[in-house]
Computed example of a mutant assay.
Amino acid sequence: MSETANHQDQPIIACITVGELAENCYLFACPKTREAVIIDPGDEAERILNAIKELQITPKYILNTHGHYDHICAIDAVSEVYPVPLAIHSADLYMYTDADTARMLGKEGPLVKRKPDMLLKEGDRFTIGTLSLEVIETPGHSPGGVSFLCPEYCIFSGDTLFYRGIGRTDLPGGDYEQIVHSIRTKLYTLPEDLAVFPGHGEPTSIEEEKYENPFVSLD
């Protein structure tokens, strides 16, 4: 588990990299109330649960940036301990129960037995103590891809934007023109000093990607 430096008013952000695809599950918590959200619990539920205990935080929501299997497969196990509201965009909901994906992984479907309590849409807000996260629809890697914005500090970009990279669009439902549009119009318009926490790989910033990302330029 890696954790960002935490000053008195800044959020607690812990990254647990899990599974065969090295997916980043994030814990985002208010330093004052210790209320938290779990973003993309993809695998290795015990490691995620141990990190929650270690940080002494209290989950209030489980949120998905999108529905690909490497981001969802620990939802049920985590939910057994923390049966808090679960949310995903409606366009990716089918991935919870997609039989072909389950067969490909050698698992019995559905990959997620829980039904979501909320279907995400642009502008939805989640309050976590003194902090909030806003939903920004950023499709392209998947039809229902979203990012979660904490305006003062950071954005969780899922598999839309990476350090010097972007999400692949050759999977079912992927759309290259759509992901470029999402990045240019939704992410590159954010403050340049905003930290970006992606679904895979190391953190970056809006400034870094606006000027150095070889896949999506400013124009």
Rank of each mutant, 00 (worst) to 15 (best):
D100A: 07
G140H: 00
M95E: 12
D98Q: 07
Y176P: 02
L149I: 00
R103F: 15
L120E: 10
D175N: 03
L21E: 02
L149H: 15
A87S: 11
E208A: 06
I39S: 13
L120W: 04
A29S: 09
I166A: 11
Q10W: 05
I88R: 00
F28C: 10
I62S: 03
M95A: 06
I48F: 12
K121L: 08
G201F: 08
S79Q: 04
G144M: 05
D100K: 14
R164C: 11
H200M: 06
D40I: 04
D92V: 07
H71S: 03
F156P: 13
S132R: 03
T130P: 07
G42Q: 04
A51P: 05
V216D: 01
I88W: 03
C25W: 08
I88Q: 04
L187E: 07
P85K: 02
V196H: 10
M95Q: 15
T65M: 10
L149N: 05
L187P: 08
T160E: 01
E208D: 14
T127A: 09
S217A: 13
I38G: 08
E137I: 02
G123P: 09
G145P: 14
G145A: 06
H89Q: 03
S132P: 00
A102D: 06
V135D: 05
L63R: 11
G144C: 09
A5D: 15
D40R: 02
C150I: 07
G201Q: 00
H181K: 04
I75Y: 13
H66E: 15
A14G: 12
T33D: 15
K113T: 13
G167A: 00
I136W: 04
H141Y: 12
L133H: 02
L119I: 07
C154G: 05
S2E: 15
L194F: 11
P116Q: 09
A77L: 15
F148I: 03
T130N: 14
N64F: 12
C30Y: 10
C150M: 14
H7V: 00
T169G: 01
G19H: 06
M104F: 13
G129E: 14
T58G: 10
V84A: 14
L105N: 12
G173W: 08
D43E: 15
F28E: 14
M118K: 11
T101M: 12
E44N: 09
L190V: 08
Y69Q: 11
H71Y: 14
G144D: 08
G42W: 13
G174K: 01
A14M: 10
I155H: 03
T4L: 15
K107H: 12
L218M: 14
V78N: 12
C150D: 13
Y188M: 01
T130Y: 01
P143K: 07
E3C: 04
C30A: 11
T97L: 04
I179W: 02
L93P: 09
L161I: 01
E152R: 11
D159T: 00
E23I: 03
G144K: 12
G199R: 15
G158M: 09
Y61Q: 08
G165D: 14
V78G: 12
V196I: 10
V146L: 10
T138K: 01
Y69C: 09
Y153D: 07
I48M: 01
C150T: 04
Y153N: 05
S90V: 08
H181G: 00
H7E: 12
I13N: 13
Y211A: 06
F156T: 06
T101D: 15
L133I: 07
S90N: 11
Y94M: 02
V146R: 10
P83V: 10
R125Y: 04
A91R: 04
